[in-house]
Amino acid sequence: MFVSGWRRLALGGVVALTAQVNAAPEDDLAALRSFYEKRFPDIALEAHIDGAYALDEGKREQWLEMEDFPPYEIAIDEGAELFEEALADGSSYSDCLGDDAPVVKQNYPYFDETTGQVMTLDLAINNCRVAAGDEAWDYLGPEMAALTAFIAYESRDEEVAVEIPDDPRALAAYEDGKAFYYTRRGQLNFACSHCHMTMVGNKLRAERLSATLGHTTHWPVYRLKWKETGPLHRRFMECNSQVRGVPLEPQSVSYRNLEYFLSYQSNGLVLNGPATRK
């Protein structure tokens, strides 16, 4: 069992001596937490896994009421069925995703040394399918949403434990995601950081802007605006569109690197997907 960045951080001074390659990500993680602690002194860091609902008591109550009959439940049920279905060559998702499946969400994303790229759960599922002779699913389609919803549900309460291994390519992927996060995009000229750090907690019209901490813990999400359960990368596309940028492809290298960077920041937090958002 490896030690997550968050736990390593807790070990204090030892970090600086033993983890030079990972110094930058750990500094990012510490700085991010310190930033939100100062900005929201009354809100526990762990509470940010609920996004905007951690910041607004009134909206939180409405949201909790919705949890009595969560709209993502259909996706979980469909995903459970899909998980049990044999693949084209007779193998199962467990054969491909490992013995712990479906409790595997906490292992993603990770840096895949074979491909030299970030591996997400969605990409891993499609890789399983293609290797078994099945067609890859649409990354924005209902099957992928359902299976990932089931896996997320089964993986609830596991801790996020994203590792940046001692491999310059892994650090490069992380840095690329970090650059994406801080880069202004679109005609409206916003970086992710402008809404989720500079303006975090403020209202855009009637909606509160959520913290980056916890952004990746609760996917896929049933979004009332979408009227269906969808993946994190669909939200990336939406964010890019909202600032009037041309969105990238779901599971593109840049979006996977962004997911890598964001997920690392949430190390040590518990998984709480799927979730409902407005």
Partner: peptide, 15 residues
Amino acid sequence: QAQSEAEAWKGRVLG
């Protein structure tokens, strides 16, 4: 924007 942001983003990094 792409050209100026290639460097400008670094100035926004926390810390």
